[in-house]
C-alpha cells in the first residue's frame, strides 16, 4: 500500500479501536449499530470537516466488529486485545490446544 493513513488508537473494553480520521465522513451509521452504545462523537474532525467517532461513551466495547463491518469507508478497524495488557482473566487470549507452555 503506497498510501498510509494515520490512525487514532483507543483501547476500550475488549477491543482496540483504530479510527482513521482521513477516511471517516461522520455518517454515524456505526453509532446506531453499536450494541453497547460505546461509540459517540469525538472532538477530532474527519475527511469532510465533520466530527469523527470514538469509543468510551456507553458500556465497554465487546469487540463485535459491527462498526467495522458497516463502515462504508473502512475507517474503523477493531483489534481484539488478545489478553495483552489484560487486567483480569476474562480478556485473556484463548490458548490453542497443544500450544501451552
Amino acid at each position: 500500500m503506497s498510501v498510509a493513513f494515520k490512525p487514532i488508537t483507543t483501547e476500550n473494553g475488549k477491543g482496540i479501536f483504530h479510527l482513521f480520521p482521513a477516511l471517516c465522513k461522520g455518517c454515524g451509521l456505526c453509532i446506531e449499530k453499536c450494541p453497547v452504545d460505546t461509540i459517540g462523537w469525538a472532538r477530532q474532525l474527519g475527511a469532510f470537516g465533520t466530527p469523527v467517532v470514538e469509543p468510551g461513551h456507553g458500556k465497554p466495547c465487546i469487540a463485535c466488529k459491527k462498526c467495522q463491518l458497516v463502515c462504508p469507508d473502512a475507517a474503523i478497524w477493531i483489534e481484539r486485545r488478545n489478553g495483552q495488557g489484560r487486567t483480569d482473566a476474562l480478556t485473556a487470549a484463548p490458548q490453542a490446544p497443544g500450544n501451552e507452555k
Binding site: V3, A22, L23, P72, D73, A74
Partner: peptide, 21 residues
Amino acid sequence: AQPQMPRVWRAESKPHKFCPG
C-alpha cells in the same frame, strides 16, 4: 495500523467519492 480495506480496493482513491452514509 492501516485500514482493513479489501486487497482489491484502490487505497489511493480513498476516501471515495460517495456521500457520508
